[in-house]
Amino acid sequence: MQTKPVNQKAWFLVLPVFLLVAFSALIPLMTVMNYSVQDTFGNNQFFWVGLEWFEDILQSERFHDAFLRQILFSALILAIEVPLGIAVALCMPTRRFWTAVVLVLMALPLLIPWNVVGTIWQVFGRVDIGLLGKALYSLGVDYNYTQDPLSAWITVVVMDVWHWTSLVALLCYAGLQSIPDAYYQAARIDGASRWAVFRHIQLPKMKRVLLIAVLLRFMDSFMIYTEPFVVTGGGPGNSTTFLSIDLVKMAIGQFDLGKAAAMSILYFLTILLLSWVFYTVMTSGEGNGRATRRRGRADA
């Protein structure tokens, strides 16, 4: 890697971005900060309460439940979407024309407004008018996402798989495309099995994009709001109330500003930590090709 020249004037080029994002990010964050340490009796009279809201939140059953649900949801999403995405990427056609067709079709769910994704699945899963709901119902499966928590969970998870697996597949496909043919030829000469080719050539080469995919999926599923909100509204009961839904309920539904602000900050800190991991992964790890090459050849 070449070193870049130091030039402080570059700040002028960055300044517009800095100001714009600071306006959109810092001012709201300061508002949130303010609320998180104050309480009010109305009439815009605030008084200092220190860390009470944070203690409240950290001890509240409701937050624990939402947090656990969130972790479970994200874990499920990763466990399903990542292997499926890899499988789909490995199945991509080799001919140019079909590749283009499949790529476009695959990317389609990614471009649908999130509430429409919700609407699509809301309709699709309904027992009276939806294809999925009706089919399951006529097969005798007890499926009703508005009343049964398990059905609701399955619907939300399947919806997310439908919505985002293509992202994992696209990234993996891009990773696979970067493997030189010489690797495959070497593997063939060595008589490597299909599994060995996958394990020692394709998987190491996909490592980087796969990390990106995992982290993106984890973070985005961690702040999912619109889709489950449209489909289940967080119910039945609280069974699909994830962190964002809970937060919006608290802030806008109940106008419980102090608590909501404290929760926002905890939420944001979690994301910040994850972003840091993401950043470290993204900006390091160039040029791990040599190790891969050696390993790719070792198998026979």
Binding site: A25, P28, F222, M223, S244, A251, L257, F268, F278
Partner: peptide, 13 residues
Amino acid sequence: TNRMAPPAVFALP
């Protein structure tokens, strides 16, 4: 970090 920020946090502010 702003790309990763949950919109729900920013809605009210």
